[in-house]
């Protein structure tokens, strides 16, 4: 993309100094480094993203990977959930429940000071496809609500099983639960 023709441009001195250090570390010139940054920024801008978003989302991806999540298309995912649920409700619930337990266990081990807050934060980031997903806590009581027009009845039940298992693993006792097509809700008390 870059041509041999050069123009001068005014930029902040402190930024250029930092870029100069980066350039030195990678054995390149400041000119090459600045041009690489701008070329990448143009490309990002052309596809509608910004470097700031990239930094923010880098953590989400890394975190999801560490927590054993992969990305899949929602409609395929929901259809598969429906098929396996209608074939064997108990086995499907057990699989989701097991996944919830495993998911929460990691927070018990890695975030010993406040596993609940860490799990809440991550769950809220991972369920970006759910238009309304809230986990609210008041003292010992936790209420989880999810509303999504795409949730089938089976998927609501399975996701509820996952969430129940997460909370139980963290020491909560589920006192209320309900799920239906498009929504789920549960209330739990810390035991």
């Amino acid at each position: 993309m870059t041509s041999d023709k050069r123009k001068t441009f005014v930029a902040r001195e402190d930024l250029l100094q930092q870029l100069n250090e980066i350039a030195k570390r990678s054995g390149r010139s400041l000119y090459e480094t600045v041009n690489d940054v701008l070329e990448l920024s143009i490309h990002a801008s052309e596809v509608g993203i910004s470097m700031r978003d990239a930094i923010d989302n880098r953590h989400l991806i890394k975190n999801a990977k560490e927590k054993g999540m992969v990305l899949g298309l929602e409609n395929v995912w929901l259809e598969m959930a429906d098929i396996s649920y209608s074939a064997s409700k108990e086995k499907s619930l057990a699989v989701w429940s097991g996944a919830g337990k495993w998911f929460a266990k990691r927070y018990m081990i890695e975030c010993t000071d406040d596993p609940f807050s860490a799990l809440k934060h991550d769950l809220e980031s991972f369920v970006w496809n759910v238009p309304e997903f809230t986990i609210s806590r008041k003292d010992r009581e936790v209420v989880v609500r999810a509303i999504s027009p795409s949730f089938t009845e089976a998927y609501s039940s399975l996701f509820l099983a996952f969430l129940i298992s997460c909370l139980e693993t963290l020491g909560f006792e589920v006192v209320e639960k309900e799920s239906s097509r498009g929504s789920l809700r549960l209330k739990a008390i810390l035991g």
Partner: peptide, 21 residues
Amino acid sequence: LGGTFVPLDVLTQMCNRSFVQ
């Protein structure tokens, strides 16, 4: 396109179960 995060082990097991059906 509607991508969503899914636990890998659930995906694997559901692939297995629904594939048979």
